[in-house]
Each structure stands twice: as C-alpha cells, then as structure tokens.
Design a protein around this nucleic acid. Structure first.
Length: 519
RNA sequence: CGGGGCGUAGCGCAGUUUGGUAGCGCGCUCGGUUCGGGUCCGAGAGGUCGGCAGUUCGAAUCUGCCCGCCCCGACCA
C-alpha cells in the first residue's frame, strides 16, 4: 500500500486553472464533447440525462402554472425577424441563414448550392422564437376570451457565437422558451415574475444553486423587451452566471406580429406578451457551482443516478455471496423512492479494481456510492459514501436499513449542497462603497492568467447608463441585476436598501445593485 | 473578428532549435496477481505527427497557405 500523493482526479485544480479545470470535469464525467461542427457539442448520455431531469422537473412546474407545450418551426422567415427593430439589432449579427433548398454537383467536384434553387426569402435558423410564435398567436387570439395564452416549447436554437464553451455557450443549444399573451399589462407583468419565481425555486431547490432574482438594467435587456428579469448565480471562480431570464415584452411584439383582441367593450387592443427561458447553460452552472477537484458533484434531485453499488471481493467464494447481496440491495433500493422519483441505481459489476471504479464514479458525481465487501457481508452492512464528503464520511449501514436510509442521505446531501453553495456565495458578496476598494476587488493580479478573485459587489448606482459603462470599460464588471426581491443570507440582505452614493459619480442612490464579472 | 498560445495514439505530453523515417506516462486488450481511496508483473493493440503544397536523397522537424482548439478582448442564454 502506497501512501497516496495529494493527487486530485481532475488536473489542473480549480485554483491552478479554472477554465481548463471546467473542461476536464466535463470530459472526466463524460458529459459532452466537441463535435465535428465548430461550436456545437455532442451531449453524451450522462450529460443528457442531467438535461432530461431538468426538463422533467421544469416541465411539470410549467404545467402546474397552467402552460401547455407546443412546437414551432426551426426556420424563421427573414421578414419576421425584421418586424421588431430592437430585436433585429440584437440578433442580426449571430444568425445562421438558409438561402437554398437544393445542392448540385459543383465544377470542381463536391456539391454546391444550386443557383437555381435559391429561396425567394432567406430563412433564419431560430435564435429565439418570439416572431414566429407571434405569427401563430396573432391567428389564435381574436377575443379577450382567448387570453391568457400560455405556451411553452422545448427546442434547440442557434446563435452564431464567436467564442464557445461546452454548455455555457454553444452555437446550438437546447432550451425551453415560454411565450404568453395577456389581456392586461398587470397580468403580463405578473406572469413574468411568476416564471422568474419558478426558475429561482427550480435553481435553488433542485439544482441547489442559490440565485439572486431581479430586473436587469436597460443595457442588459433582451433585445425588444420592456423589462428583463434574471436569476443570477455565483460560480466558484467568482464570476456570475445568468441562469435564466424572464421578459416582459409589453405590447412591442404584439404590435410587430399583430396579436390583437376585442375586449369586453368591443374595443380592439394589442395583447401584452412575455417570454422566458432556461437552457443547457444550466448544466454548466451546475458544474461550476458544485464540482470539486475530483470532478463532478451532482445534487440528488437532478442526478441521472442516485446510487452506484458494486462488489468488493477477494476470492470466488465471497464473490458469489456478495453478488447475491448486491442484487438484493439493488432490488430493495429500486423499490424505494427519493421524493417523486424511484431510486435510480447503477450496479457496477465490471471486474476492474475497486479503486478504479471508485474514482470513475467520483468523477461522474454520483451522489452515493455503495460498496459491499467481505467485511460487510460478515457484519450485514454496506459501506456508503457521499460524493460531497471525503473518505472520512463513509458509513456502514445495515442491509435491512438501506432502502430507508438512502433517501434520507440524499435529502441531507441535497440540502447540504445548497447550504454550502449559499455560504460560498455569501463569503464572496461584499458591500463596497469606496471606488478604490471596488477597483481592487475586481482587478486581477495577473491579467494574463485567469485567476479566481472578486465576487459579487453590492454597490450603489445612480441609474445612469454612463456610470454603468464606465465600470464595464474599466473593469469588465457589469450590473448583474437589481436585487429588488432581496438576497438570501443575512449579511448581504441587510445592506441592500441602505441609501448611499453612486460608486462612480457620487450622486444619491436609494439601493445597492449587484456588480460582478460574468460569463 | 483582433492579440497570445497550442495541434504528435483515447487522454496528458516529450521529440522540432542542430532534418535520418516516432517515443513516454495513463488508459485499452490478453495472461497472471491483486481488490475496502488509483495493486503489481509480463505480453500486446493502437499514430498517413491537424491538412495541403513546397524545399530536400530524406520532413513530426525547414518554408508557404489553410483548418481546428484554448486563453484574453469585442458579443451573448
């Protein structure tokens, strides 16, 4: 037995090179990989199963709030996109455009778009679907009795990004986009906030990612929105991640698409619309919130498998006996539930060494690992390890109690993970009123090498776009959101509504906003 | 798209300056030995050295062009 070096399963560590660590975690956990298509990823089964769980839970929450799923075209006529001025401006530079509908043999071999098969009007691969869905809404809505119209779609979208990172920003990504139309402004605004609330409940209670809810500043708004609200999370490198957005679109898109209805008095009105979405980016947020230097750590409510169980044996005699026990344990566990889900149990019978399996499952982030060996067999117990605790956290649990104890351990792990992430965020959230301190907080010591520093600064802002861009230009720091609904965590919460003076110009300010570097 | 870095086996890399026909660790396969936080020994498989063109008797190595990836910037969920 060799004294193990302080070797981490993922190299480099977060502290050494955070960006590289992130990529290595994705690879080591077998979540996704780059594809032959630049900027587009292949989501592998373990990664896709995480997305499926996100989808499953959110879909249920959307249904519970009255929404129905539908599906709209991948292609958007160019003229549709042109209908809303701000919308065009926001998306025009990152659109994939389809111009032909046929290929023919080219002069130098290979295929070229057939010049005779050029589309009369180019089609845009949807970067978002407000305009194409708006066209349908315009047909569906005639009367106030048709409202509210509450629709969601699960889809892929394409935004031709210059720089991509697996899950965080890819050219094609998966998401859901909710689109609703309402008879009144009040109702549409309520819807916008209701869905923001759904997102924050989901992020915190399922993903165990603490988030700050609030409106965005004008410069951070969705192109064409009247108001954009977001949930913002702090990653372990202390950069913020916008994890979901909900937009109040006013009547802008209704006007652009002609969504009109007759109200009870017989007057023609434009509807009030909203849209809201979360994407596969959430998986990136999950990774960067919880994972450690040994790889992925998955919150039980979202993990593809709750438990992996494998035998540890010396000779063939015990092997047989242990195998029987493993089967029984797996059967008992699969009959049990963790909240609304049957326990998902992986049984690893490969004849690899125990150490190899151990590390493989650690890197994949399975919440609980269960080993059954000769000692356990004799004692009638199984050795259970929680992914978020070190080897010292292993505990022996009698076989008969496994099915009852495993859900308890999962519940505990789920809440511990959230508490840990919240404590981490609080530790890096500071009220800063002095410009020099603000600059120091956000200035990397070595600009050429990514470095963990900074965090969330709660500072005063006068409300001017000018002061906002001053900080963006100088420090690459932006206002992540205005924390209108408070921030969980006593220390930070207490100081939000203190009056003060703009960190840039010194004008009076009534509340603090959240500044950070971001993804 | 601008600045920087890098493309050699599945992963991580050496070899490139000083051209001579490809290597190391991990992983993988087989045999044995082990198995409770990465067991050890032996035998194997696996690479048109990112691509194309050039220089040369000979190119991973030199030259040109192209492609891709990563980091920083501009933009974004």
């Amino acid at each position: 037995m060799t004294q193990k070096a302080p070797r981490t399963a993922i190299q480099p560590t977060r502290a050494q090179d955070y960006a590289e660590w992130y990529q290595q975690v994705v690879r080591a956990a077998d979540l996704a990989e780059n594809s032959a298509v630049r900027g587009c990823m292949v989501i592998k089964p373990w990664g896709y199963a995480i997305w499926e769980n996100i989808e499953r839970v959110l879909d249920r929450m959307f249904k519970e709030t009255g929404h129905k799923n539908a599906y709209f075209p991948l292609f958007i006529p160019k003229s549709f996109l042109e209908k809303e001025a701000a919308h065009v401006e926001g998306f025009a530079k990152e659109c994939a455009v389809v111009t032909h509908h046929r290929l023919v043999a080219g002069p130098n071999g290979g295929l070229i778009p057939d010049p005779k098969a050029e589309l009369e009007e180019p089609l845009i691969v949807r970067p978002t679907s407000e305009t194409i869905i708006g066209a349908s809404f315009a047909q569906w809505v005639k009367s106030y009795r048709d409202l509210p119209l509450l629709i969601n779609q699960w889809a892929n979208v394409v935004r031709w990004e210059l720089r991509t990172r697996l899950f965080l920003r890819t050219t094609e990504f998966l998401w859901q986009e909710g689109h609703t139309a309402h008879a009144t402004e009040t109702e549409a605004r309520e819807e916008t906030l209701k869905m923001l609330d759904v997102y924050s409940v989901f992020a915190e209670q399922y993903m165990a990612i603490p988030v700050i809810r609030g409106p965005k500043t004008a410069s951070e708004r969705f192109p064409g929105a009247v108001d954009t609200f977001a949930i913002e999370a702090l990653m372990q490198d202390r950069k913020a991640l916008q994890a979901g957005t909900s937009h109040f679109l006013g009547q802008k898109f209704a006007e652009a698409s002609g969504i009109k209805f007759l109200d009870a008095t017989g007057t023609q009105n434009f509807a009030w619309t909203t849209s809201w979405g979360v994407s596969t980016r959430l998986v990136g947020g999950l990774i960067m919130t919880h994972s450690d230097d040994d790889g992925l750590v998955l919150p039980p409510r979202i993990a593809p498998a709750h438990v992996v169980i494998w035998p540890v044996y010396r000779g063939d005699e015990t092997k047989e006996a242990i195998s029987v026990v493993i089967d029984e344990a797996a059967r008992a566990l699969r009959a049990a539930s963790f909240e609304d889900r049957r326990l998902e149990v992986e049984v690893d019978r490969r004849d690899n060494s125990g150490g190899d399996k151990q590390w493989e499952w650690i890197k994949k982030g399975v919440p609980l690992r269960i080993e059954v060996g000769p000692r356990d067999l004799a004692a009638g117990t199984a050795l259970v390890s929680r992914r978020d605790l070190g080897p010292a956290g292993k505990q022996a649990i009698p076989f008969a109690e496994l099915a009852a104890r495993v859900p308890e351990l999962l519940a505990q792990m789920q809440s511990d993970m959230f508490a840990r992430a919240l404590a981490e965020r609080d530790a890096h959230t500071h009220a800063i009123d002095d410009r020099a301190a603000f600059d120091a907080f956000f200035t990397p010591r070595n600009p050429n090498k990514p470095e963990i520093h900074g965090g969330l600064a709660l500072s005063h802002w006068c409300g001017s776009a000018n002061c906002e861009s001053t900080l963006k230009d100088a420090l690459k720091v932006t206002i992540r959101c205005i924390p209108s609904y408070g921030i969980a965590g006593a220390k930070a919460a207490a100081r939000i509504n203190e009056p003060g003076h703009c960190i840039v110009c010194g004008e009076p300010s009534t509340m603090r906003v959240v500044f950070a570097k971001s993804y």
